[in-house]
């Protein structure tokens, strides 16, 4: 089986996971609406925020698939602006989950060469997965962060008490075809957001990895800063 066929099969299983994953926000909206009919207290903000975010997740999934073989143009990006914009999108949903969202930007390392849509899509997809996981822990804080490392700059989403490791992520990716939920230690959902994020990063030749930010664990991606861009 060539890599094109393998990709197609993987995309099929990802589609299944995404379709299954979209059930959750629709059930949230449905049951909130039914509750509203009973007690006249429909949380319309919640319904709006969930619907909005789910539509963005669908867009991320379609972007990740790259069906039209779009060119993901790389451009100089301010990582802090990408993080702040993604955090703005995630914040409303985090509130409904009782999770506090933070942004942590260490060091001024100038622009990175990347693609804004793919990077924001990555942060939002992973962000939602971590918000869902963190909401049932004692430490309900999720942090969008960047930090410098030996090889470049890492941007990612982190939390304190989530159960995530490289082996869990590796196993999850391996089991995407066999298991309905391939990372049950990490999330009660099927983790589709993580796999969508991975596809988005692959489109810009970047990798998804488990990473640490101070005492927090999470998922990040490594980018190089451009010395040339810094001179501009």
């Amino acid at each position: 089986m060539d890599s094109g066929e393998q990709n197609l099969i993987k995309s099929y299983y990802l589609l299944q996971k995404v379709a299954d994953n979209i059930k959750l926000p629709l059930i949230q909206i449905l049951h909130q609406a039914q509750l509203g009919k009973i007690n006249n207290q429909t949380d319309l903000d919640q319904i709006e925020d969930i619907a909005n975010f789910t539509l963005k997740m669908i867009d991320n999934y379609v972007l990740g698939l790259n069906i039209n073989d779009n060119k993901f143009n790389l451009e100089p990006l301010s990582l802090s602006s990408v993080l702040y914009d993604s955090a703005k999108e995630l914040d409303k949903l985090a509130n409904h989950y009782g999770v506090k969202l933070q942004v942590s930007i260490n060091n001024n390392f100038g622009p990175v060469l990347s693609n804004r849509m793919a990077l924001e899509g990555f942060l939002m997809s992973v962000g939602l997965s971590l918000i869902e996981s963190a909401s049932s822990t004692n430490n309900k804080v999720v942090t969008l962060a960047t930090h410098k490392c030996r090889y470049g700059v890492v941007a990612g989403v982190y939390a304190k008490e989530i159960n995530l490791s490289s082996s869990i992520l590796r196993q999850g990716t391996k089991l995407i075809e066999e298991a309905k939920r391939s990372m049950p230690e990490f999330s009660h959902t099927n983790g589709a957001g993580i796999f969508v994020a991975e596809k988005l990063l692959n489109n810009i030749n970047m990798k998804l990895m488990v990473s640490k930010h101070h005492n927090l664990k999470g998922i990040g991606t490594l980018m190089s800063t451009s010395k040339q861009l810094q001179l501009i």
């Binding site: 959750l24 059930i27 949230q28 049951h31 909130q32 509750l35 009973i38 007690n39 919640q46 969930i50 409904h96 989950y97 009782g98 869902e132 909401s135 049932s136 009660h188």
Partner: peptide, 26 residues
């Protein structure tokens, strides 16, 4: 119920009809 949003919705519904609800996520 592991999903916090659903947990709140269901707890709200059951409490509003006079039940005493204790929630667990795991």
């Amino acid at each position: 119920e592991p999903d916090k949003i659903l947990q709140k919705t269901y707890a709200n519904a059951l409490e509003s009809s006079g039940n005493i609800v204790v929630s667990a996520s795991s």
